[in-house]
Amino acid sequence: MPNVAGMADEDDPLFKALADGTRRAILDELVARDGQTLFELCARLTTNRGLASSRQAVSQHLDVLERAGLVRSRRQGRYRLHDVDTRPLARIARRWPVPGTGAAPQPDAPRTRTPDTRTPATRTPHPEDES
């Protein structure tokens, strides 16, 4: 069955998690400091970004990020702390390698189309290009 627009795949939770400005701001704040409580995250979102989300809303955003594997929560004593985990983002670069970033295509990645346009800024020069 051919792929159709809107078809779900295993990366859906990842892209849904990223498709929201508040959730991206949460990731930014966790990159600034790992191991935050819900209280600290909410305070940072309010004062650093002017976001007025309720604690409950932020808690739900954290659940979405956790399902995507981008945030991990752990219990330390009586506190629940949240850490960022950017490893799932590597799947994006593996799926759509970015030239010049060292992200090589997977050997078995299906080649659906041979590049036929020159993109000098990003493409590695090849002898055949000179013909």
Binding site: R33, Q36, T37, F39, E40, A43, R44, T46, T47, R78, Y79
Partner: peptide, 23 residues
């Protein structure tokens, strides 16, 4: 401390555990 000194808008705040069940 659950939160080290952190600038929060016009203030700097930190949060600690009072050992009696409160932050």
């Amino acid at each position: 401390f659950t939160q080290p000194p952190t600038p929060m808008g016009p203030a700097i705040t930190a949060v600690f555990d009072d050992t009696c069940g409160n932050l």
